[in-house]
């Protein structure tokens, strides 16, 4: 009956989202009067999970699963859910979790709610709130199946500490045909990804050309942020597609989003609205972004950004 939570790791280290989904699973377990079982795949140290309400950790070590495989990982979670007789399975909104979730839903014949932003408002019927229409609305949905899968939106629930002692158990599921083979991975290990970033610094067409991105990258570096851009900027080839955020690009749910030289078109705003605090820097006081932002500077990015970098450097030095 335990709530099962998939706590992701990268190169053996648990990700921050692992603690957020564990916190969520704990909240659900309290509502249902049951315990939390976390499952990890090739994670080295699982002890921090006991700080977030996890009662038991199933550890899977498998060389076959050394690179992510949606089918293989979904099969592991499927067998873990059956072993624990879990009625609720909690996942994050990482690209990998979103990849495996629909397969797991089929294997468990479970209703799946993605982009969930709050603990269940009721457990019978099991009802959760999720974002829909690319953040232009919220939807309350009830899940009717015996087993339920919840995909928690990044940064929506937060971390809730709940110290305890988690027991650890080795779990050896049987893995068959994986179907897909990873040939190569191309990933900048020194950069924060948009999905994992707490702060995102984003540039638009107002920056005039790719040669001006140095200051965007420097600002991002000072803040430990990821860099992003508006759609025309990636369509023009100034920045890679992977940086395009918005309704048709990547969603952003960071704590802080800084938009520089971005007008704030509806399609852009839709994709970044889930960010908690928005700052806009734009020469045009009429730019629509000012209506969606928390803080704004009406000014020229070419003056404001370099000055902001200097001031942040001295601020950080004092911290």
């Amino acid at each position: 009956m335990s709530v099962l939570v998939y706590t992701e790791s990268e190169q053996g280290k648990l990700k921050k989202t692992a603690f957020e989904v564990a916190s969520y699973a704990k909240a659900v377990a309290e509502q249902l009067g049951t315990t939390v079982t976390a499952i990890t795949i090739n994670a080295d140290d699982t002890s921090p999970l006991s700080n977030y309400g996890v009662d038991k950790v199933l550890t899977v070590t498998s060389s076959e699963l050394s690179t992510f495989n949606a089918k293989g990982f979904a099969e592991v979670l499927h067998q873990a859910a059956e072993k624990e007789e879990s009625k609720v399975v909690v996942l994050s909104s990482s690209a990998n979790s979103k990849y495996l979730a629909p397969l797991l839903a089929v294997y468990l014949n479970a209703g799946y709610a993605s982009n969930v932003i709050a603990a269940p408002s009721s457990t019978s019927p099991f009802t959760v709130k999720r974002s829909a229409f690319t953040n232009k609305a919220f939807e309350e949905i009830s899940i009717n199946t015996d087993v339920k899968i919840i995909g928690v939106s990044n940064n929506a629930f937060g971390l809730i500490e709940n110290s305890g002692a988690a027991s650890e158990e080795t779990f050896s599921p049987s893995i068959t045909d994986l179907g897909i083979k990873v040939e190569s991975v191309d990933k900048a290990s020194d950069k924060v990804s948009i999905a994992d970033a707490e702060i995102v610094v984003s540039g638009g067409r107002g920056l005039k050309g790719p040669e001006n991105w140095g200051m965007i990258e420097e600002l991002a570096e000072v803040l430990g942020a990821a860099t992003a851009c508006s759609k025309p900027v990636s369509d023009l080839g100034w920045r890679p597609h992977a940086e395009h955020v918005g309704q048709t690009g990547k969603p952003v749910a960071s704590n802080l989003y800084i938009a520089i030289g971005i007008s704030g078109a509806i399609q852009h705003l839709a994709g970044i609205n889930a960010s908690k605090v928005k700052v806009v820097i734009n020469t045009d006081p009429e730019a629509p972004f000012f209506k969606a932002a928390d803080y704004g500077v009406v000014g020229d990015a070419f003056q404001v950004v370099p000055e902001l970098i200097e001031k942040l450097k001295s601020f950080k030095a004092q911290q």
Partner: peptide, 29 residues
Amino acid sequence: AETNSVKFEKPAPKGAVKLVSPDNLDELI
């Protein structure tokens, strides 16, 4: 239907933006 849509809701309207002068970026920080 494994899930049912119960109700929709629009995000609460946003409060007014706080403007900071470009000459006073310390205030933004």
